[in-house]
Design a protein around this nucleic acid. Structure first.
Lengths: 213, 213
DNA sequence: GCCTTGCTAGTCAAATTTGACTACATGATC
DNA sequence: GATCATGTAGTCAAATTTGACTAGCAAGGC
């Protein structure tokens, strides 16, 4: 599953009530258009789809104050909040979900309580280590690692990335346990969306060369 | 772009002539169903689409020898070969394309000449380093790295992954320059597909926990 | 003889993603 | 006073992906 639903649900949730263009702007503010497939079409599609599924409610609104077609505002439902939390937990734990999903999960991690975040990240490390053990055990048994030819390099790549991912996760756990950041229920939450009319300080100048793997 | 076209073109190319089910089996043999979105539907769709675009030619064949619906065999065209090489080069160089694309690229890297492979991988390292430099320069300027709150962790994740990717690539370059593997034009090519009727020695027992990021 | 399982080969509807495009208003420029 | 860029808000067709499903045949068991 892609990161879009998580991102869109999270954006709507932080706003309380938001129309598509606002969500679109938040995702750009977060840089999500750089590291996820957050194109306009995908965002509006996700909003409509999730409204159809009862995760959001749609409010038809009068034409916008500043030009353009009439907008629809969305609000998250109780069911949508459950889905958001469920997607968020999955994003933090599961290791088979591309960096976009993990990035989105990190972006919302402070919406959980500190203890749960730490627990989920520990789960993540455990999952990576289990995967690593099984894959190295499975692919390098009798005939030695060279029997695979250059195909062995693919496994080497995976293992390398897994190790880097685990190390990064351990570092994050340590920082969180040491008291970094403000989590749910710890007072003044982190403000992660643009207020109506506020301009995006990161709007341009973002580097070209592409996104991390 | 996903890795499917590269995988399918590469499989057909190595076979000379192949029907969908054969391609499907090769991808399973390569483990591609584990690290890419290579589901039956995607494979058959890619074959049809690329035939429509002139990258493959379709030959209608008599119903198969061993049950099932009539099959269509595909052969790669000159244009398809060009596309294959172009996708392959892009997969090896570009850093914004998920691990599935890179994995597929590594799987076919020996279809290039040794010198070109090394050159492309050097390009990859350079691209990663350029990206790293621009991103660290851009996001940590005046107000110190802590002004981003937990969002800074996303960048940290990217940089960590980028460094791991660069290191792995440098290692691969070193091994290739030291003479590892057999590249195009160096005699007996690596056999990467299953012959008709040959069984897949890796068919089952592949670990569960998921795929690398 | 009949039934279940498994393999071969592929199809299909629904969901998602892509990339380009529309339409309106405001402010700037020439 | 015409036109040109910019920002707001969203639509649409085409391509792709997902996940479940179909249908024929063979081997083995009972």
């Amino acid at each position: 599953m892609s990161a879009i639903r998580l991102l869109v649900l999270g954006a709507v949730r932080q706003h309380g009530r938001a129309h598509g263009y606002q969500v679109r702007n938040d995702l750009e503010y977060w840089g999500a258009h750089e590291w996820s497939n957050a194109k306009p079409g995908s965002i509006y599609h996700a909003l409509k789809q999730m409204a159809k599924q009862g995760l959001l409610v749609a409010h038809e609104t009068a034409p916008s104050t500043a030009g353009g077609p009439p907008r629809t505002e969305y609000e998250i439902t109780e069911q949508g909040t459950q889905e958001f939390l469920s997607l968020l937990r999955a994003a933090l734990v599961s290791y088979d979900q591309g960096m976009d999903v993990l990035s989105a999960g990190i972006g919302f991690v402070v919406d959980l309580e500190r203890a749960e975040a730490v627990a989920l990240l520990h789960e993540r490390v455990a999952a990576i280590e289990a995967w690593r053990a099984s894959v190295t055990g499975y692919y390098t048994p009798t005939e030695g690692p060279e029997s695979l030819g250059h195909i062995g390099e693919i496994m080497n790549l995976w293992v390398h990335s897994a190790d880097a991912g685990a190390e990064w996760t351990r570092g994050l756990i340590a920082r969180i346990e040491a008291g970094a950041y403000t989590f749910a229920g710890e007072g003044e939450p982190f403000v992660g969306v643009l207020a109506e009319g506020q301009e995006n300080p990161y709007a341009t100048g973002v580097p070209d060369p592409g996104d991390p793997v």
